[in-house]
């Protein structure tokens, strides 16, 4: 376990806590993409099937359980606070992401078995799952500060995994090609957001997309 991976996992954990905090204190689902959150439930459930047959560490097991349970809880919260009268900005055709991730998983996997294909599927889906949320952000124009912090912490997590993979390549000779390539893709998807976040939030201005 190296510092990049721990910081990455912590930032992932924090992002979810920020989201739960934001939705439960405002009692509003506004500005949050239900499609993105539902995609994360699929991501975690399909990736962590190995909970049933592979033990890595207590840390690993607890984190996996946390991500599965919290993602389901978030979807439950969003449904609870979603107002039908609200004009929705959550319009991205999310099935394209599911379909694309599935095709990629069939092509790129370590073994042509259900568990390995679902594992690869979860990585590809995760790498693009934020897109409906970014679309909501763009259409809303202005977002709550907490929402932008949430997206930032979530993006930071996979970005921190990149130095972790470089570190593990040199120290352990370990190279997980599928995770690395999908992880880089995920970070690229975020790059535009990171730039705007830096300009608007770090420089203490109101978050507004052009």
């Amino acid at each position: 376990m190296n510092i990049f991976r721990i910081l990455g996992d912590i930032s992932h954990l924090i992002s979810i806590l920020i989201l739960i905090h934001a939705v439960s204190t405002t009692k509003s689902a506004q500005g949050i993409s239900l499609k993105t959150q539902a995609a994360y439930v699929v991501v975690f459930v399909s990736r962590y099937l190995d909970l049933f047959f592979r033990y890595v560490s207590l840390y690993n097991t607890l984190m996996k359980l946390f991500f599965i349970v919290s993602s389901i809880y978030v979807v439950f919260l969003l449904n609870r606070y979603k107002k039908n009268s609200e004009k929705t900005n959550d319009i991205f055709p999310v099935w394209y992401l599911f379909g694309g991730a599935f095709v990629f998983a069939l092509i790129f996997n370590y073994e042509f078995s259900i568990v390995e294909i679902l594992w690869s599927f979860s990585l590809w889906l995760e790498s693009v799952a934020i897109i409906p949320q970014l679309v909501v952000l763009q259409r809303t124009g202005e977002a709550q500060l907490l929402t932008t912090h949430y997206i930032f912490a979530l993006g930071l997590y996979r970005a921190l995994y990149i130095p972790n993979w470089i570190y593990r390549y040199y120290t352990e000779g370990r190279m997980d090609k599928i995770a690395v390539i999908s992880g880089i893709l995920q970070t690229i998807v975020y790059s535009d957001f990171f730039y705007i976040y830096y300009k608007k939030v770090v420089k203490n201005l109101k978050f507004k997309l052009p």
Binding site: N60, M63, R174, M175, D176
Partner: peptide, 10 residues
Amino acid sequence: PKVQTSHDEL
């Protein structure tokens, strides 16, 4: 380097 991995990450 090993190409196959153990899936020990989150």
